[in-house]
Computed example of a mutant assay.
Amino acid sequence: MKPTAVVALGGNALLRRGDAPSFENQLANIKIAAKAIAEIAREYRVAIVHGNGPQVGLLALQNLAYDKVAPYPLDVLGAESEGMIGYMLAQELQNLMPETQVASLLTRIEVDADDPSMLDPTKFVGPVYNEDEAGILAEANNWVMKRDGEFLRRVVPSPKPMNILDKTSIDTLLDAGQMVICCGGGGIPVCRSDFGYQGVEGVIDKDLSATLLAKQLNADKLLILTDADAVYLDWGTDQQRALRSATPAELSEYEFPAGSMGPKVEAAAEFAQFGGRAYIGALEQGLDVLAEKAGTCVAV
């Protein structure tokens, strides 16, 4: 049996910062992602997790445009984005690998409704704004805005994933030889209640969900592909430098931005401590990152 790799695609890798949020732009980036994943799939059983920050934020904006009904909650918008991106990925992968079945699975992930992030949102969603735009939108919609580089973006709660409710279905599909797109957008956040499971108003970080999936699948490798070519120290300064390899202990000595590289580093370190090898790198360099010719490798 082939070894198993969980591949995590950042939402910003599928819709680059500054790109117009059009279908054409997303499709062009998904074609790049599909080509990289198809190469990996020749050597590995592959489960794909994707982000949805730009996409779910766009859906929220479209949602506000129709003011005759209350806005749909974030868990429902997350499911919409999971279906949209999953369809586009599945179609491009199937076109590249017609002999391989590709399944896109809406995936529910259990979270704690009292997770601390519910009061301190950190997950970036939607497009970037300048100071004036961000202030107007924050006041009009009761949004929280935080800085993302030189711009501002909306942030929403990002509860930590606790359990993948549809993990048995993922196992079944992988065992049947299918490539599986799952836990999209970090998965649909749900929590236990007196009436069964119910949705939670938040967006799970897809890197943490990918790590949870990799651990539950006992995967060999976790590959986090994004719009950065590696993990950098002193990012944005004259002293910035790429970190090509590190242990979890070494990474713990540095601080990384909570809404972007921080969760990726946390996810990679957690999987490395579990006993696997984790990688962070650019979407276009997927196979080279996995071969440790590019990107950042995290291992004990």
Rank of each mutant, 00 (worst) to 15 (best):
I224A: 05
C191L: 01
V156S: 04
S81N: 09
S81L: 04
K293R: 15
A13Y: 03
V298F: 03
R108K: 12
I164W: 05
T122P: 00
A269T: 12
R154Y: 02
S252V: 04
I188F: 00
T4M: 13
D171C: 06
T4S: 13
C183R: 02
G187I: 04
L283C: 08
Q55G: 11
K264A: 14
D75Q: 13
A267D: 13
E292P: 00
T168F: 12
A65Q: 15
L290Y: 11
Q240D: 14
G199P: 00
E253L: 14
Y72H: 11
A70N: 12
Q198C: 07
V46H: 04
L225D: 04
N142D: 14
V7T: 04
A138F: 00
G185K: 02
N52C: 15
T100W: 11
A268F: 05
P189N: 09
K31C: 04
P21I: 13
F274M: 09
A268Q: 10
Q26C: 05
P121K: 06
Q239P: 01
L217F: 06
R241A: 15
G186S: 03
V155W: 01
D132C: 00
P263H: 06
V49M: 11
G187P: 02
C191P: 02
V56K: 06
A34V: 09
V6G: 07
I40K: 06
S158D: 09
L93E: 11
D112F: 01
L89I: 09
G259N: 11
E255A: 12
A20E: 15
L217D: 09
Q240L: 04
D238A: 15
Q26E: 14
K68G: 07
R153N: 05
V46C: 13
D75G: 04
G196V: 13
A246V: 07
G184S: 12
A294H: 07
V203M: 11
Q26S: 08
G276L: 04
A299I: 09
V289L: 00
Q240H: 12
F271V: 10
S158E: 05
R244D: 13
D75H: 15
